[in-house]
Design a protein around this nucleic acid. Structure first.
Length: 519
RNA sequence: GGCGUCUUCGUCUAGCGGCUAGGACACAUGCCUCUCACGCAUGGAACACGAGUUCGAUUCUCGUAGACGCUACCA
């Protein structure tokens, strides 16, 4: 085995937004490349002109930029193996198609789509292969003159790979080991279409990977069935000795139900399946994105990395650098992974907690503005500091009340609005109020307000000294009633911190109006 | 239907012939406490089934079932 520099690629087709499963495939390629000091190539596989969606390519590039997955070369990144867009490589493919044709390893087929449909109706499980190609219209069955005449007339044709039956084809997969398939069950795949002068995936893929000196093909399991075909293609070209190693990744499955993860699941269960928000240029439909939902890219990366792989120990929270260090294709699991988006939320919680308060501010500021609040960055950071470890109550899909950590900056608002606006009204029926607003509460609060009023220094320490000693001397426990005054219910941070944040004037104002309304 | 891949708690998974089958998410409880929390601790919860190999199988082999994927002039 020759020492070749590791080169891997991620090669999406620009048919829409990047699916989260594609993100994981790209991530694994990136981790593998970086760990081995290799290159990651970004190639656009736009050989199906009918499915092209404008904006998709830019979307994909922006997604990876946000996620911190960096390409070394490719579309928009430059490099010495270009062009990296398959639609710009027509001449290259033509050359290789001819090579196969000349060597008798491929042939031209003139069957029209209608004729093929007819055959499929006529013969059950029809497959274009060694058994059936003799009865079709192709350069193998037609007289040479006839073929030349049709070519001269400009008849459309496709080039098919001539698969020799009865051979065991071995795919050496880094994750699954030796996968063996008999070539008899393979069909003569279309490699090239004269109609648009473009190759199909299979041909383009092999030619490009070879020319771009790709050493490892890391892709989804849906490609495993066509891997033998690819092996045969490498052999047909005489490139077997530099054929890349294969690694077929397990699929991402629906959180509930059967099948692989689809956009529908996200819509139904309320989680994004795309990294960025996507606006469909045709339908105008908007699909939510992780970025816009308030996820941190580190969290998305970490979460995705662990869906189908783990470092073999109990470590779960890992930075990109750690992932690069620890990643191991041979430790990838073989079975599909259900997409556990709840764990993704937990990862976001972890990374959010690690962030400095000031890093929450821009997002928090957005949330506050949406609610008509203006505050300084210092105030916002202070509130974040007091609130970041709280929980949110929410109602799940089954209508049950549940609790969730503050996992997104936007979770903060319902928990901290009282910092910025006084309780609209005091609800006597509130459970916490009922329990903590006793008969003596009004009098106690009057007394408390008096003490606060007398303080020149309204800092946390100053208040704590004054109130604690009063509480100790009188045996009173004023905090919960005080909380009722300032918050309206049983939420919020330490009372001294809250009161210091609000300031003397606002604090006393709220105490007064609570006394008024609750008695 | 054919071909291929896969199968450990509800979920993500560790395990690579002998373990009280480990961790995390989620869930429940307790501790802490001026509230809600965070944190910490605890708990319930799994080897698809059937043969075989072996002194011994979650682990190896075969079969069954199920799941997933592919089966296009899409990728």
């Amino acid at each position: 085995m020759t020492e070749r520099k590791v080169r891997v690629r991620f090669a999406p087709s620009p048919t829409g937004p990047l699916h989260i499963g594609g993100v994981r495939t790209a991530l694994y390629n990136y981790l593998f490349a970086k760990q081995n000091g290799g290159d990651l190539i970004f190639r656009i596989e736009d050989t199906d002109s009918n499915r092209f969606v404008p904006g998709a390519e830019e979307y994909i590039i922006e997604s990876f930029k946000w996620l911190g997955i960096k390409f070394d070369e490719g579309v928009s990144f430059g490099g010495n193996y270009g062009p990296y867009r398959q639609s710009e490589r027509k001449d290259i493919y033509k050359k290789y198609v001819k090579q196969l044709l000349d060597a008798g390893k491929a042939y031209m087929a003139f069957d029209t789509p209608e004729e093929l449909d007819a055959k499929r109706n006529e013969i059950e499980n029809f497959q274009y292969d060694a058994k059936t190609r003799g009865m079709m219209r192709n350069s193998l069955t037609l007289p040479k003159e006839e073929v030349e005449r049709m070519l001269a007339e400009g008849c459309q044709y496709v080039v098919r790979f001539k698969i020799e039956p009865g051979r065991d084809v071995h795919v050496d997969d880094l994750i699954r080991g030796d996968v063996n398939i008999n070539s008899s069950i393979l069909d003569d795949k279309v490699l090239y279409k004269s109609a648009d002068e473009l190759p199909t995936y299979h041909l383009a893929n092999i030619v490009d990977d070879h020319l771009m000196e790709v050493t490892h093909v890391i892709r989804g399991e849906e490609w495993l069935p066509s891997a033998p075909l690819h092996v045969l293609l490498y052999e047909a070209f005489g490139w077997a000795d530099t054929m890349p190693r294969f690694a077929h990744l397990p699929l991402l499955l629906k959180p509930v139900g059967n099948g692989k993860l689809s956009k529908r699941d996200g819509d139904k269960l309320g989680f994004p399946v795309f990294p960025l928000e996507w606006h469909d240029p045709k339908t105008g439909e908007v699909s939510s994105g992780y970025r816009e939902k308030g996820y941190l890219p580190e969290a998305v990366v970490n979460f995705l990395a662990l869906l189908g792989w783990n470092p073999g120990n109990d470590q779960e929270v890992m930075s990109m650098d750690e992932l690069i260090r620890l990643f191991d294709l041979s430790k990838c699991s073989k079975s599909g992974a259900r997409f556990d988006y709840v764990k993704g939320i937990w990862f976001n919680h972890q990374y959010l907690l690690q962030k400095d308060n000031s890093e929450w501010v821009p997002e928090f500021d957005k949330v506050l503005r949406q609610n008509g609040i203006e505050a300084t960055a210092e105030q916002e950071a202070a509130v974040v500091g007091m609130m970041k470890q709280k929980v949110v109550e929410y109602v799940d899909n089954d209508g049950n009340k549940k609790k969730r950590n503050v996992s997104f900056v936007s979770d903060l608002w319902p928990l901290c609005s009282f910092f910025f606006t006084a309780p609209k009204a005091y609800d006597k029926e509130d459970k916490f109020v009922r329990k903590n607003w006793k008969e003596t509460a009004a009098a106690d609060m009057e007394e408390l307000a008096g003490i606060l009023q007398s303080l020149d220094d309204f800092s946390v320490e100053s208040q704590r000294n004054a109130i604690d000693s009063w509480a100790e001397a009188t045996g009173k426990k004023p905090w919960n009633a005080w909380r009722v005054c300032l918050v309206g219910t049983g939420q919020g941070p330490d009372m001294y911190e809250l009161s210091a944040f609000l300031g003397k004037e606002e604090t006393i104002k709220r105490i007064k109006s609570a006394i008024e309304q609750l008695n």
